[in-house]
C-alpha cells in the first residue's frame, strides 16, 4: 500500500501548481477546505461556481467545527461532480475523515481528500492541460501521482 504521508506531500506539490489566494504549503493550510475549493473552481468552474463557493466560510482562524463543515461541503461536491458530470461512481475507496483533517491536520486523511481532487483533474473536460502539467513535475512526484490515480481507477 501507499506511503500516504509521502503521497500527501506529493499531492500538495501538485496543488501548488494552481493559483490560489490562500496559503497552500502545509497540511494545516488545507484543513479549512478553501484552498481545495479554489482548485476545484479552476478544474470545473461551471460546476464549482460562485454560488457553490459562497456556501463555504472563508475567514482566517476558523474554528475546527467550521473547517469540518467546509470540508464536508467540499467532499460532497467532489462526489456529486464525479457522479453527475463525470459519470464516475467511486466504490470501495476509503473516504477522507474530514474531522481528522479539520481538527488534527491529519496527513493521511488529507492525502485521501487531495487524491479525490486529483481524480477530478485527470477526468475533467480540461484533463489534457492538467496531465501535461503533471508531466512537467519531478519524476518522483509523477510516480506518486500515477499510483494515486491507479488506485482511484481501481475503485471506479
Amino acid at each position: 500500500s501507499m506511503d500516504r504521508s509521502h503521497l500527501c506531500q506529493s499531492l500538495i506539490k501538485w496543488l501548488n501548481t494552481f493559483n490560489v489566494t490562500v496559503k497552500n504549503q502545509t497540511v494545516e493550510d488545507f484543513s479549512d477546505g478553501i484552498a481545495v475549493a479554489q482548485v476545484l473552481r479552476q478544474i470545473a468552474p461551471d460546476y464549482f461556481n460562485e454560488a457553490w463557493f459562497k456556501k463555504l466560510k472563508v475567514e482566517d482562524d476558523l474554528n475546527w467545527r467550521l473547517k469540518v463543515s467546509n470540508l464536508k461541503k467540499v467532499l460532497n461536491g467532489i462526489l456529486e461532480y464525479n457522479m453527475e458530470v463525470l459519470g464516475i461512481q467511486i466504490q470501495g475507496f476509503q473516504m477522507p475523515d474530514v474531522n481528522l483533517i479539520g481538527e488534527h491536520y491529519d496527513s493521511v486523511e488529507t492525502s485521501r481528500l487531495l487524491q479525490l481532487v486529483l481524480g477530478c483533474a485527470v477526468n475533467c473536460a480540461e484533463k489534457e492541460s492538467h496531465i501535461h502539467n503533471i508531466l512537467k513535475m519531478e519524476e518522483s512526484v509523477q510516480q506518486m501521482i500515477m499510483n494515486a490515480i491507479q488506485e482511484l481507477m481501481s475503485k471506479e
Binding site: G87, N123, A125, K127, E139, Q143, M146, I149
Partner: peptide, 30 residues
C-alpha cells in the same frame, strides 16, 4: 526495498501511463 519499478524504466512507464490517461474517454455529459 526492491519492490519498485526497475531503474531506467520508470520514465517510459510514466509516459505510457499518462498517455493512456489522455486517450481514456470520460464524462457522462460528453
Amino acid at each position: 526495498d526492491g519492490k519498485g519499478a526497475p531503474p531506467g524504466n520508470s520514465e517510459g512507464m510514466l509516459a505510457n501511463f499518462f498517455n493512456s490517461l489522455l486517450s481514456k474517454k470520460t464524462g457522462a455529459a460528453a
